[in-house]
Nucleic acid binder design. Structure first.
Lengths: 117, 117
DNA sequence: TGTGGTTATGCAAAGCTCGACATATCGAAA
DNA sequence: TTTCGATATGTCGAGCTTTGCATAACCACA
């Protein structure tokens, strides 16, 4: 039997909107925080600026929360920074996701590993 | 703040093949077991027969396991039943997924709920 | 031995997501 | 006041997934 690994995807939804926050948007926020701009963040993650921008908008719209502060113009062209609210979300989601990841690994060991050996 | 719910997707992969078994194929096997045929199962799950058939083939090929026994012809046209191996997989995956689901819920309560209130 | 309902499978059409472009706007600094 | 690089946003096409036919093969039973 081939070796298997457990994989998962995690996200949050409202009644109306599926995927208002999840792994992708979490990575995006982290990258924005590290890079200082949406453009640099999208390039770092190798996703299109168009998608990064849309994802961010979707999250902020659905959650009604200002996750980032965006500035246009200026000598640097502009910049995007993560708000304190946004940072709270990053931290909370990081712990959330970490717990789930551990649980997936544990559950795999407990229920699947024996089956596959 | 809108009410949120945590959602997840879970699956197993080999080094070569992504998604050799997961929520969809698990549901399919359960449905086959309940319905007695691949056709009825696919209709019950409201996915195309074409996809159900392909999914099953993909899982069996990648795992090198006979999850079901298929019979063509006969007065009923044919039927598909889940093998004992397949049932083992269903049971194990059910427990696996159940544990993960509980963990997701727990982690949500612990890390996200406060944030959203 | 003909029938019916199922499995088996290829292929084209339909959907959906994401990326690539094309512009427009903005504003601090030169 | 010109410039430069980032944000803002619509649109069309590429790539991948799923559906929808269209057939063929199969076989217990009437």
């Amino acid at each position: 039997m081939k070796k298997l690994r457990a994989r998962f995807k995690l996200w949050l939804s409202t009644k109306d909107v599926e995927g208002v926050f999840g792994d992708g948007k979490w990575r995006l926020l982290k990258s924005i925080d590290a890079e200082g701009s949406l453009k640099a963040a999208s390039e770092s993650l190798r996703i299109s600026y168009r998608k990064a921008w849309g994802d961010l908008k979707k999250a902020e719209d659905a959650l009604s929360i200002a996750l980032v502060e965006k500035q246009r113009g200026g000598n640097m062209g502009g910049r995007t920074t993560v708000t304190s609210q946004g940072k709270k979300w990053v931290k909370a989601y990081t712990r959330f996701r970490g717990d789930v990841e551990k649980a997936v690994e544990k559950a795999y060991e407990k229920h699947i590993k024996e089956l596959v050996k």
